[in-house]
């Protein structure tokens, strides 16, 4: 049986992480499995845990009455699902639905936030990994917003 710590350190997202910090994170982690169509979380719920996808695809969705469910984006093996756990009021702002069988590492948000508060070194290591992710997502959202394919006709 693989140790949680080993699984954490093997994730590309945590590449180069100090094993001691890896052990701290593993202390907040547990394994999850989701069947297709199962929800990792729903919009409005407390963001008490975020996920590191080890296998499978997850769709981030928005539901509105009278309209078909809109897919905001999809996340795949190696990606992080959820950032709302980082900032108050710690509530999810979309649904996350498994599209395939999903294996994920769930990290308890309150546990990790606590460890970051206690040890700034851990906090900084997490910040260094989450900030680029957030910026990348923001840039991707900008590009989606631009609707670049709308009216172009390359020669």
């Amino acid at each position: 049986m693989e140790s949680l710590e080993g699984i954490v350190l093997a994730q590309p997202f945590f590449a180069g992480l100090d094993p001691a910090i890896g052990a701290l994170i593993a202390g907040c982690a547990r394994n999850h499995r989701f069947d297709p169509d199962a929800y990792l979380f729903h919009e409005g719920e407390e963001a008490s845990e975020f996920f590191l996808l080890r296998e499978g695809d997850v769709a981030l969705e928005i539901q509105a009455a009278g309209r078909p469910t809109l897919v905001l984006g999809t996340v795949h093996a190696g990606d992080i699902v959820g950032a709302s756990w980082l900032i108050p009021p710690y509530r999810w702002n979309s649904d996350a639905r498994a599209r395939t069988p999903v294996r994920a590492l769930g990290i308890d948000a309150a546990c990790l936030r606590g460890k970051c508060e206690d040890d700034p070194r851990t906090g900084y290591a997490m910040m260094k990994r989450f900030a680029p992710l957030l910026v990348r997502r923001l840039q991707a959202a900008h590009l989606q917003l631009l609707d670049v394919y709308g009216r172009s006709d390359p020669a």
């Binding site: 078909p68 897919v71 999809t74």
Partner: peptide, 11 residues
């Protein structure tokens, strides 16, 4: 860039 749930590919 945008899709409804009926699309099973990447978004």
């Amino acid at each position: 860039d945008r899709a409804h749930r009926s699309w099973h590919g990447a978004v």
